[in-house]
């Protein structure tokens, strides 16, 4: 997994709540057997019409917005556990998703793929939607997110273990495999 430390970028503001993983990547695009290429179909049915033409008023097609940070309404990533949603977001080029609430499985999936979910207060989130052309800094080390348009910053939570993994580019499997003896001992003692 690639390391994550600090990112400064413009944002893509998507003021929609309860974005489910079926919207992030519709089921009919889950037929691949590798992890690559899902970015092409990220938000497919919001982004393109049935003939494959871009839908102008969808934020990903709005030339004013671009960047490594996706900002979305509350309860982002609910629904299906498909990790393809995290792969699609990463493959498209996002490294951070900001929302006031994340669904649990999506949060785990994105952390396992080097995409940082940053949960902020409702008020702080609105600061982005009110200033969509802002530049934002996300610093994992200090767990701080900064909105340059308002000059405000907020601390965000992350599990210390997950933070350590992201900062160092480690993944869970490396850790678990190193525990094999303990796991076998656990099995014997049950």
């Amino acid at each position: 997994m690639e390391k994550f430390s600090k990112i400064t970028s413009t944002i893509v503001p998507m003021q929609i709540e309860n974005v489910d993983t079926d919207q992030i990547i519709p089921a009919r695009f889950l037929k691949a057997t590798s992890r690559d290429g899902f970015g092409e179909n990220l938000f497919r049915d919001w982004r393109y019409d049935e003939n494959g033409n871009p839908i102008k008023d969808f934020v990903l097609n709005d030339s004013r917005y671009d960047g490594l940070i996706l900002v979305a309404g509350k309860n982002f990533g609910c629904g299906s556990s498909r990790e393809h949603a995290a792969w699609a977001i990463h493959d498209y080029g996002f490294r951070v998703v900001v929302s006031s609430y994340f669904a649990d499985i999506f949060k785990n999936n994105s952390l396992n793929n080097g995409v940082l979910p940053v949960q902020v207060s409702e008020e702080f989130l609105n600061g982005f939607f009110e200033n969509p052309e802002t530049e934002v800094t996300v610093d994992l080390e200090s767990q701080k997110i900064y909105n340059s348009a308002t000059g405000e910053s907020e601390l965000f939570d992350i599990n210390p273990y997950k933070k350590y993994c992201l900062l160092n580019g480690y993944d869970d499997i490396d850790y678990l495999v190193s525990m094999k003896d303990e796991i076998e001992a656990f099995e014997k003692n049950r």
Binding site: N112, L176, V177, I183
Partner: peptide
């Protein structure tokens, strides 16, 4: 409970999963 594919791989490799307790 449902898990993502990276977690499926964790279980394949170690029959365990890293999971914060809900």
């Amino acid at each position: 409970f449902g898990i993502g594919t990276s977690e499926v791989e964790q279980v394949f490799a170690t029959q365990c999963i890293l999971q914060p307790k809900p």
